[in-house]
Nucleic acid binder design. Structure first.
Length: 625
RNA sequence: GGGCCGGUAGCUCAGCAUGGAUAGAGUGCUGGACUUCUAAUCCAGUGGUCAAGGGAUCGAAGCCCUUCUGGCCCGCCA
């Protein structure tokens, strides 16, 4: 919040000056300065150069001298840099006082750009026939982090998880159980989702090669699942429910949670589709082909894209006919056919609901909104584009359907090698079908063991339970951070050794800074007095730390506006870097009483800021590690 | 063939939306700092024709165009 107050003060005063100079229409930028150029930089002189026909530096000097009269607030000095920038220097004592006091408030870093706007966000949506692999983890972590960030930015976000329980992949494992004799019970200790994915699914799809006739059986199974009511359909729903409950354990372990589960089988049976089909016809958004390669099909008219078949010439609907009703339902464009019931209470104590078609007396719930965000792999961009365009027309432009796309996770050649695939030095796409993937639970287990050893070494006096708690925290944090620290459009090449490092730009590095701060506070044995002599904090490391703490809400705003969770990861990292530099160069506990108090206050501010920032990407802050 | 995305230090990536100051991190390598608030750390050094070319601009890693290159997508499968 606090850096923003500084920015606002400067902007207000600059506006006055620009008005006097008759150049008030300029849209200038005012940003936290690069190190060595004061605290806030303004580019207004560059922009004004043209209309005033003067060199940027001259204008900067003009502005600087007119600004003199405004000094004495949060700004103590203004400078015209030879380059043309106007650089502002904050009154460090005032800024520190402001930042440190505000950082102690619960809502520190909140910024109400959402103003309560409703958002429906879908993420995870893993087919319920296998366990989560590292690629799914990216989806979960991106989605969950985005939810936390958007909520911090003042949006009212509801989280959906779409369960494709009537797809081909479910038919595959069903066939494995019914026709290939796979036991319904995994071997001792094996999670059911791991069993279905690692053994039943892989081995069943393998069989299609040698016994192609199985595919016909699968198609029959698929049809029965979609129609419902048969023994096959009942078995399928029992099976998927069991896989789902195991998958959710992994998601919760990662720190994610949801508001409602949507089942594809229910969308299919809800009769939403005929309703929408009619509307689409009325609105002329689809057409019936009487000629050409799509003869006798209903197709979606997509601008600049190939037409997409929606209803086959035999009258059956394609898979998009499942996605469209769901998208329309999320946007509230159709009457809600569902009832709701509690699925379970999640580890964070939030109730998870699910849709049901069976009437009940539970209150109706509303998960739709005018803005829908769907987190899906970039490989589905084409399809998502078609749906986006369609929904825009369907919703008369008042609704927003956003595909939050992210690049896939591939395996490094070493990691692929360790799974038995020679890629000739190249990275490899994961494949559930081929069993070529890194399982999420297993990677967390590995990380947990690694961090447990590390923590034990450093804290031999801690109890086993405490050590495990810390190890769990750090393991989840490490994986989440790896999945989020780079931009969504960058492919993550996962390597079981390199990606699990605990040093450098990693979650443990950041968490470690927090633990160090905890020890200072623990050993100081004094409660901080927030009416401190903040003028005493004049070491460069102290000042840098204050300033970065003051920027949390700017990071939240950036991340929320750009749907970019990475922004928060970068912010957390630079916060930790700044604290570690402070820690190495400034002694807290040896300071004289007034300085000690001021520094302790700063350490407190750092902790509460980092804790709030890390929470936005689902990372905990153990006080020891 | 069409569409989408990437190409910045040996490697992995920030910076690009909104052009402006010395292009930054991590990692690697070299050297240094633990009787000190936890060395999962810090400090110093090393390392870059920002893929190439052109254009608009006083000014381009960033904007426009072209080319090269890597990945993904393009079924009456889901």
């Amino acid at each position: 919040m606090s850096f923003r107050i500084l920015l606002d003060e400067i902007r207000k005063n600059l506006d006055v000056i620009l008005q006097e100079q008759k150049i008030s229409e300029l849209v200038f930028s005012l940003e936290p300065a690069k190190e060595g150029f004061g605290d806030v930089s303004c580019n207004v002189a560059f922009l004004a150069a043209k209309s005033l026909k003067k060199r940027p530096n001259e204008i900067a000097q003009l502005i600087t001298s007119s600004y003199e009269r405004f000094l004495g607030g949060l700004v103590s000095k203004v400078e015209a840099h030879p380059s043309g920038y106007v650089n502002f220097y904050a009154d460090n004592g005032k800024l520190a006082s402001l930042v440190i006091k505000q950082s102690q408030q619960d809502d520190y870093g909140s910024i109400n750009i959402g103003a309560g706007t409703k958002i429906t966000l879908e993420h995870t949506s893993v087919n319920p026939n296998k366990a989560l692999h590292i690629g799914h983890v990216r989806n979960v972590v991106v989605g969950d982090s985005m939810v936390r960030i958007l909520r911090k930015a003042g949006y009212f976000v509801q989280i959906l998880n779409y369960i494709d329980d009537s797809g081909l992949q479910v038919a595959d494992i069903l066939l494995g159980f019914t026709h290939l004799g796979f036991s319904q019970e995994p071997s001792m200790g094996q999670k059911f989702d791991h069993y279905c994915g690692d053994e039943v699914y892989v081995k069943t799809t393998e069989k299609y090669q040698s016994s192609p006739e199985l595919q016909e059986i699968r198609n029959k199974i698929l049809k029965e699942i979609e129609e419902g009511n048969s023994e096959t359909a009942k078995f399928a729903s029992k099976l998927t429910a069991r896989v789902l409950s195991e998958q959710l354990k992994t998601c919760w372990r990662l720190g994610a949670s949801y508001d409602c589960l949507n089942f594809e089988s229910e969308i299919v049976r809800s009769k939403l589709w005929p309703q929408i089909f009619d509307k689409l016809k009325q609105m002329n958004l689809i057409k019936f082909e009487s000629d050409g390669k799509n003869k006798d099909c209903w197709v979606i008219i997509a601008d600049g894209e190939e037409d997409k078949v929606l209803v086959r010439s035999n009258g059956t609907a394609t898979y998009i006919a499942k996605d469209i009703p769901y998208a329309a339902w999320k946007l509230g464009l159709v009457d809600d056919p569902f009832y709701y019931k509690e699925y379970t209470t999640q580890p964070n104590n939030m109730v998870l609901h699910q849709t049901t078609l069976e009437p009940n007396n539970s209150p109706k719930r509303n998960y739709s909104s005018d803005r829908v965000i769907t987190v899906i792999d970039s490989r589905q961009a084409r399809l998502q584009n078609i749906i986006t365009t369609l929904m825009q027309k369907f919703g008369a432009g008042k609704k927003e359907y956003i595909h939050l796309s992210y690049e896939s996770v591939t395996l490094s050649s070493d990691t692929a090698n360790s799974l038995g695939l020679d890629t000739g030095g190249k990275s490899a796409q994961m494949s559930g079908r081929k069993g070529l993937y890194v399982n999420a639970d297993k990677i967390l287990d590995t990380l947990e063991q690694k961090t447990l050893d590390e923590t034990k070494k450093r804290n031999p006096e801690l109890s086993e339970q405490a050590l495990h708690q810390i190890a769990q925290n750090v393991a989840v944090a490490t994986l989440r951070y790896e999945m989020i620290k780079q931009d969504l459009d960058k492919i993550i090449t996962f390597d079981t050794t390199k990606s699990l490092s605990l040093e450098g730009d990693t979650a443990p590095y950041i968490q470690y800074a927090y633990a160090r701060a905890s020890r200072i506070i623990e050993k100081s044995n004094t409660a901080p007095n927030l009416d401190a002599k903040y003028d005493l904090l004049n070491d460069q490391h102290e000042l840098n730390l204050v300033k970065i703490i003051g920027r949390l809400d700017l990071a939240v705003q950036d991340a929320a506006n750009n749907l970019s969770p990475k922004v928060i990861a970068k912010y957390c990292y630079s916060l930790a870097v700044s604290f570690n530099a402070f820690y190495e160069h400034v002694r807290v506990l040896d300071a004289t009483p007034d300085l000690l108090n001021a520094r302790i206050c700063l350490v407190y501010a750092f902790q509460s800021c980092l804790q709030k920032a890390l929470a936005l990407i689902g990372i905990d802050t153990p006080s020891r590690m």
